[in-house]
């Protein structure tokens, strides 16, 4: 191994790398008898030890504070959106009612009436007969339609606006 030709710059740098300590023993024999390679190794050692002095990054003292302020503002926007999202089904439901009422598809009084009878029917049938209550329910077509419409709109909005932004 002592007769090995001179180590390349690459090999000498490898010797100095923390990750390649194993190779050190492989080249040690040559290094111990070659002054030229020893000199090169010393030069690289010196360079390695001095490079860190070249770190020139200056970070403003307010940097962390500024990021925290931005994160706080972002969180408050996110909270506002969450409130909006939780109110959305009600708003959409009411708007749908209003539109349907306007188009004379349904009347609000009918819906209120059928909602009332639905709830009272539901409670009484469930309390009297737990397993055969479903067929006896008097669910109005309008209520089902409004429910489906509201759920679809909400899902669409969530998919297009809310999900990409916050999840």
């Amino acid at each position: 191994m002592a007769k090995l030709k001179h180590l390349t710059d690459y090999q000498i740098q490898e010797l100095l790398s923390e990750e390649n300590r194993l190779r050190k023993t492989f080249y040690d024999e040559h290094l111990s008898s070659c002054s030229s390679c020893q000199e090169k190794l010393t030069e690289y050692k010196k360079l390695f030890s001095k490079i860190e002095y070249a770190d020139d990054i200056e970070i403003s003292p307010d940097f962390t504070k500024n990021v925290l302020l931005r994160a706080k503002a972002l969180k408050s926007t996110e909270t506002n959106y969450q409130i909006l999202v939780s109110l959305l089904p009600f708003v959409l439901g009411l708007s749908t009612f209003a539109v349907l009422e306007l188009l004379s598809v349904i009347s609000l009084s009918t819906v209120v009436q059928s909602s009332g009878s639905f709830i009272s029917n539901f409670i009484s049938t469930v309390s009297t007969n737990l397993f055969s209550w479903l067929p006896s329910l008097n669910v109005s077509f309008e209520l089902v339609a409004i429910g489906v419409l509201t759920a679809s709109l909400y899902h669409l909005l969530d998919l297009l606006l809310i999900k990409p932004r916050f999840r």
């Binding site: 390695f48 001095k50 490079i51 860190e52 002095y53 070249a54 770190d55 020139d56």
Partner: peptide, 30 residues
Amino acid sequence: NYGEILRAEISQLPEQQKIIVSLYHFDDLS
């Protein structure tokens, strides 16, 4: 100032080498 001299020399390196030198030697990344 060694730092100044080396900074000047590093700034002459191609960009990709500058990035890697700084990540390896300044941030101690593997």
